[in-house]
Nucleic acid binder design. Structure first.
Length: 451
RNA sequence: GGCGACGUGGCCGAGUGGCUGAGGCAACGGCCUGCAAAGCCGUGUACCCGGGUUCGAUUCCCGGCGUCGCCUCCA
């Protein structure tokens, strides 16, 4: 069974399942107000790998990932551009899934929208008020974190330390709040802002209330795993948990957080800095699988550098795997080598050790190639194992572009020239194809072309 | 000010108290090839600095330096 680092307990421990054979996961989805960036790509890719692996081990995965379509950033942009906020959220959501498709991330099993859960949020906030855990101000309804047992679990910092800290940053809403860490559950709307009704006044839910309501509604109490980027650890996940605890409900049993994407200088790429890179650009410019490959080769909790060199290296590595896939397309199917699959499982069960799993994949490919060269009958099992690992990691191999007719004709002419030992013509044709961007492989069996 | 992570070959990036400098990329030599490509085989004086613990530390502890993150919207 999978052992995973748990942010709450700060140790690698078994991912215990509430129901045997089934895994319930909540992943914080995007706030749809702009194009997805590299950070979104990393998170979704890491959890896509997790999900595929869990499914491969035979578990039924329920992965809920929301769309946050109520948020200040959306409202700000709508006002700035003077257009309906729904126009922004629907377009951004479409672009989001376009990008997800581009990097081969499977759709979550459930995609709840915050706008569909406002009533439930109002109800929950009312309960928190009734319990004396939330209080009303002229600005909105706030949760009193001092009333929440164990607040700071995910932040790994006590409330006192938080109060002492903060440096020279100003506290948002300090004039209304009882404690600097208190956060808004319901924000009263100003004129011209989207608003939903509530017993206390029209307004909109706070971000932290959205996810807690949707996760508990769809997955129920004590669901297995809650995940997201490191930056969501605090305050977002802390505050989600605080609301559940304040309500007396069991929340996520396990917390998983992925590391950041950093730039060449090692600095975090985020929306508040100017160094954001658009995920769509990356997919557009390079093999979309390259990003997944870069991530696979480092651990999900480590920061990862996305640079030209990194992506280039991944593209080359992928080319080798594609060549393998092309070479083995016609190899007779066999049962995957059990020892290889066992090693794969061992690596992945160890806190999702994709670097080791990926090293195993490359190693298996090398062994399979060697077996093929030697005419060893172990080749079939190795090929099958390599393919199974690649698929489980979400890598589709050998997906070469269709070869256009003119290129295919040149390849055929090249073969004919070689048979006739007209090497000058053969070399000229090869040079032409290479100039057009093809990788040309001439073998005894004939010429194959790859991009 | 509080909390935390990290510092490994030309680059990226795993990992371990001695059996690994994993794996990828790049480079070099060889086999294969008409020549290439692909593939295979082989080649690399590493673990920021200073102490300590130990038979033995890159790996554990302490101190220092450096980088980064969270404490505020953020994957």
């Amino acid at each position: 069974m999978l052992r995973l680092y748990d942010t709450a307990t700060r140790e690698v421990r078994e991912l215990a399942l509430r129901e045997p054979g089934k895994v319930s996961i909540y992943l914080c989805g995007p706030t749809v107000y702009g194009p997805p960036h590299l950070g979104h790509g990393r998170a979704t890719l890491e959890y896509d790998i997790l999900r595929r692996y869990l499914e491969w081990t035979g578990l039924e995965v329920r992965l809920v990932s929301n769309i946050t379509d109520i948020e200040d950033k959306i409202i700000e942009r709508a006002q700035r551009e003077d257009r309906p906020w729904q126009d922004i959220t629907t377009k951004c959501e479409r672009v989001w899934f376009q990008a997800m498709d581009g990097i081969n991330v499977e759709r979550p099993t459930d995609i709840p929208h915050a706008t569909d859960y406002v009533e439930e949020m109002v109800e929950m906030i009312g309960q928190l008020k009734d319990l004396g855990r939330a209080y009303d101000t002229e600005d909105g309804i706030y949760l009193s974190v001092e009333t929440v047992e164990g607040y700071g679990l995910l932040a790994q910092q006590s409330l006192d330390d938080m109060r002492a800290g903060g440096g020279d940053r100003s506290v948002v809403g300090a004039e209304f709040k009882r404690h600097p860490a208190d956060f808004v559950l319901w924000k009263y709307s100003k004129p011209d802002e989207p608003a939903w009704p509530s017993p206390w006044g029209d307004g909109r839910p706070g971000w932290h209330s959205e996810c807690v309501v949707m996760s508990l509604d769809l997955l129920g109490e004590g669901f297995d795993l809650h995940c997201g980027g490191q930056d969501l650890r605090f305050p977002h996940h802390e505050n989600e948990r605080a609301q559940a605890v304040a309500l007396g409900k069991r929340f996520a049993n396990h917390w998983m957080h992925n590391g950041f994407v950093v730039d060449a200088e090692g600095e975090k790429m985020s929306k508040s800095l100017g160094n954001v890179s658009n995920l769509l650009d990356l997919i557009d410019l390079y093999d979309p699988r390259a990003y997944r490959m870069v991530l696979l080769q480092s651990h999900y909790r480590s920061p990862v550098k996305i640079t030209q060199d990194n992506i280039d290296a991944a593209v080359k590595a992928l080319a080798g795997l594609d060549a393998f896939a092309a070479r083995t397309a016609s190899v007779a199917t066999a049962a995957p080598a059990a020892d290889v699959l066992d090693a794969f499982r061992t690596a992945m069960d160890d806190d999702l050790d994709t670097p080791r799993a990926t090293a195993l994949l490359f190693d298996t490919v090398r062994q399979a190639n060697a077996a093929l060269d030697a005419g060893d009958d172990r080749a079939g099992g190795l090929v099958a194992a390599a393919n199974e690992i690649a698929t489980t990691l979400g890598l589709e191999l050998g997906a070469a572009d269709d070869v256009p007719d003119d290129a295919a004709a040149k390849a055929a002419a090249l073969d004919a020239a070689r048979r006739a030992k007209d090497y000058a013509t053969a070399d000229a044709l090869r040079a032409e194809l290479q100039a057009d961007g093809w990788t040309v492989e001439t073998t005894a069996a004939g010429t194959t072309l790859r991009r």
